[in-house]
Design a protein around this nucleic acid. Structure first.
Lengths: 170, 170
DNA sequence: GCAAACTAACTTGAATTCAAGATACCATTT
DNA sequence: AAATGGTATCTTGAATTCAAGTTAGTTTGC
């Protein structure tokens, strides 16, 4: 009950499996488990900053996607949900909420009558500008706990991994 | 619209920000964005294997936590939800579902009358044994696309990162 | 021209999750 | 022993998400 004073939560899980299933090589759980756990914890930390601006994580993601697309800050719903990895049903709901808050407007496309264009409003633009700066500062702060060389190495390895799994993914 | 033939989805996002907000150093978005995206894609890939055994991701997590705790495969709800990073309300719901499926049973604790012990049933044990082996094989397969040295490097860097953010996290 | 296949967006219903609060029990102090 | 504070679990209601199906508009092949 008090064996592992070194190591993190994932190490403890690996020790349990080594004891219970010594026949299995569970080493991939170390990498993948830490990755998932890092993602969850990072998400919590970023949400804390978003909340400061009255934004949830997905609201920030939506406004940021429109902002970085450049003038006229306008995208089709399909572009939004495919880049943000959510379904069309989720997008319908999100757009309704953001429109209700006045951060986006919607107008019919001239090229394709099926398509409605989503546009960042002036309010939405002003909000995301401020939130973005705080968010980037927060990310810098989070990574400042690591030596720059480690961050760079992590970057490279994650890019490799992403490349191998982005293909396969349907 | 067709500039970046090299690079992944995250590179494209960084290019957009460089164009729109050249005053900001958004490099942390590269690491953190890739990390989040890897986690989301890996989760999809693992869910595909779980589905093969009639399991969702969280169902696998629950049974696996009980299994790796060792005989008598018994944990308190509090131990479960704190290690799985969900709330107590979520745990109540999960336990109800798993009990309904016959994979766990519940019994009052003898030491503490507030506590009900969750126990893996024989069915649950048999199921997680099979699913676990497929899951581990799947994880090996996913990482086999990378050289072993890269995986090891990734492992080290993620452990560093996890150490710095596990502290701060309340 | 018109039917078949496809695409864009939305609707519906169910699943999952959390925050906040309620309830019951335990431990410690007085 | 009574009170206070803390712990373990559950309940409730709302938010978020997805899968599957719907509607409407577009494109292709004959």
């Amino acid at each position: 009950m008090s064996e592992a004073r070194t190591g993190d939560a994932v190490d403890r899980i690996l020790e349990q499996w080594a004891r219970e299933r010594p026949d299995l090589d569970v080493s991939p759980m170390g990498v993948i488990g830490r990755l998932s756990r890092c993602a969850a914890l990072l998400s919590q930390r970023m949400d804390a900053v978003f909340a400061h601006y009255g934004l949830s994580g997905w609201e920030f993601d939506m406004l940021a996607a429109l902002r970085r697309s450049g003038a006229p800050y306008c995208l089709a719903p399909t572009e939004l949900f495919s880049s943000l990895m959510v379904t069309s049903g989720t997008m319908t709901h999100r757009l309704k909420v953001l429109e209700g808050k006045g951060w986006i407007t919607r107008e019919a496309s001239e090229l394709d009558a099926r398509s409605t264009l989503v546009r960042l409003s002036a309010d939405g633009f002003a909000l995301i500008e401020r939130a973005l700066e705080a968010h980037v500062a927060n990310e810098h702060a989070i990574l400042s706990g690591l030596p720059a060389r480690s961050v760079e190495a992590l970057q490279k390895r994650l890019a490799e991994l992403l490349a191998t799994i982005e293909d396969h993914a349907n």
